[in-house]
Amino acid sequence: MSIRGLAVSALMVSALLLPGCSSATSPVDDWGVDEPGQPQLTLSEDGRLSGTDGCNRLMGSWEEAGDSIQLSGIASTLMACEGVDTWLSGAQSLKVDGDTLHVFDAGGRELGTLRRH
Rank of each mutant, 00 (worst) to 15 (best):
Q38I: 06
L58T: 00
E45V: 07
D97T: 07
Q92Y: 01
G73Y: 09
A65H: 07
E110C: 01
A7P: 02
R48Q: 15
L94K: 00
I69Q: 00
L6Q: 01
N56S: 05
D99N: 14
A24D: 15
A91M: 03
G112R: 01
R48H: 15
S50H: 14
E82Y: 05
R109I: 03
L11R: 07
H117I: 15
T100E: 15
E110I: 02
A7E: 06
Q38H: 13
R109T: 04
G108S: 14
A15M: 13
I69S: 00
I3R: 11
G108Q: 14
M12E: 05
E64W: 00
V84P: 01
S44L: 12
S50N: 13
D29F: 11
R116C: 06
M79K: 08
F104R: 04
A7G: 05
V28Q: 15
G51K: 08
P36Q: 08
P39R: 11
S61V: 13
D105C: 06
A106Y: 02
S89N: 04
T42F: 03
D99P: 03
T42I: 05
S2D: 12
P27M: 03
Q70L: 13
S26T: 12
L111I: 05
L6E: 00
G112L: 05
A106R: 04
P19T: 12
F104C: 08
L111S: 09
T52V: 13
S61R: 15
D97W: 05
Q70H: 10
G60I: 02
E64C: 01
S93H: 01
V103R: 02
S76W: 04
L17E: 04
L18W: 15
R115Q: 07
D53K: 02
L18R: 06
S22G: 14
Q40W: 08
A10R: 05
R48M: 12
G107E: 10
V8T: 08
G20C: 10
I69F: 00
G73H: 12
G107M: 03
S89T: 04
S23C: 04
G83M: 09
V33N: 08
D46K: 03
L88Q: 08
L111G: 07
C81Q: 08
L78E: 12
Q40Y: 09
I3L: 12
D67C: 06
Q40T: 03
D85S: 15
T86H: 13
G47L: 04
G112S: 04
A75W: 03
P36R: 08
S22Y: 07
S9L: 12
L49F: 02
S72L: 00
D97V: 08
S61L: 09
I74D: 00
R4H: 10
D97P: 02
C81D: 14
L101S: 09
